[in-house]
Amino acid sequence: MYVCICRGVTSSQIQREVSEQDGKSSVREINERLGCGKDCGRCCSSIKQIIQQSGTNSSNPA
């Protein structure tokens, strides 16, 4: 789904970005790279949640 409506950034884009950085990205880094969270800022909490979930998944590989 679309996480940042202002810049049209999707959850899969964020997940991909996090996995490329081995789950060590911060919200600020993601915002810098994808351009999200810079207009209304309403998506920042959702971005944080996705980073946390992706981080947990990458640290526990199946």
């Binding site: 789904m1 679309y2 409506i5 899969s12 309403r42």
Partner: peptide, 15 residues
């Protein structure tokens, strides 16, 4: 509030 927007028709329905 925050808009929940899907990328596909199924996702739109879920949102």
């Amino acid at each position: 509030g925050k808009l929940l927007i899907g990328e596909t028709p199924e996702e739109c329905l879920e949102c």
